[in-house]
Design a protein around this nucleic acid. Structure first.
Lengths: 156, 156
DNA sequence: ATTTGTGCAAATCGTTTGCATCTGA
DNA sequence: TCAGATGCAAACGATTTGCACAAAT
């Protein structure tokens, strides 16, 4: 049985890999190009919304709503396509929490989430609050891609 | 920060609460009635499939397929309704693993899962293989309903 | 008798896709 | 130029629901 420390999972570092580049003043074109994506107006607009406000957990519908509110002309289909493209490029991560609804996380390292059952919102659990004493070995020929932890909360 | 031991989460016990009654020869009528559900033919048939083969992880479609194969007359809509009813009654548990597809688990205590990304299958991770060194406090006014752990595996 | 469950088909929801048009390298 | 991206609308798969009928208390 491996120790969690050896895998670097859920460490205390507040890594925010996907937004580092943008925060450092690099422009959208370079940022997207580095992920192998053509920097279009729509993708830059969505990237700005995603990266602008720290770590976010949102659905395609929600992001589309924000884009509409900001009068960026981006269709819902493009939001879906772009989120999938960003995820495939490793800029975002999908969170499986609610059946029938995909959340995207702007933070892409393994880290635990709070899920509020009452209103369906997601938040990062406090940094360092979850630590493993042990993790399973992967079966023969397999390796661990990620470890998802969801702490479901309800009103007391 | 609470210790995992204090919450009884992911203990070594192989608890199988939902199937205890059935294994002990109690009949379906009593078993369902105790959960506050009226024991109908369809529900008994589905309960038999669910409980018969140890811990299972399956979708509504899959269960419906089995019922068809066994020539039990149960419609897909009833399978969905029944799974929801069983879940609400605490006899089953939903697992959020894949977007757009709900898996039901016949084991209802907190326990970790392996998810095979290649073929979409789910398995229980070895008993005792996951242990927490620490778990987060629930925010004020909230309590922890459950802690879901999914270890995603891919071919090496 | 009254309440609850069933089954079908239609409706709904989130998401994906086909295709004509547009855009960035 | 021209592969790749966009947008709309139609297609899609999983799930839910309305309603008439059947079954359980």
């Amino acid at each position: 049985m491996k120790q969690a420390e050896n895998r670097g999972i859920f460490s205390d570092m507040n890594t925010m890999v996907s937004s580092d580049a943008a925060r450092q003043g690099e422009n959208c074109a370079t940022w997207l190009a580095r992920a192998g994506l053509r920097p279009t107006r729509q993708r830059c607009a969505l990237a700005a919304l995603l990266i602008g406000g720290g770590n976010r957990h949102l659905t395609a519908e929600a992001l589309h709503g924000e884009a509409q509110g900001a009068a960026m002309g981006v269709s819902l289909a493009t939001v879906y396509n772009t989120l999938k493209a960003f995820t495939a490029a490793g800029l975002l991560r999908e969170i499986a929490i609610e059946p029938g609804r995909v959340y995207y996380d702007t933070r892409i390292d393994d880290h635990p989430h709070f899920y509020h059952e009452s209103d369906g919102t997601i938040a990062d659990a406090p940094v360092g609050s979850v630590a493993f004493a042990s993790l399973p070995e992967a079966p023969e020929g397999m390796e661990i891609a990620s470890v998802d932890v969801v702490v479901r909360l309800r009103a007391k």
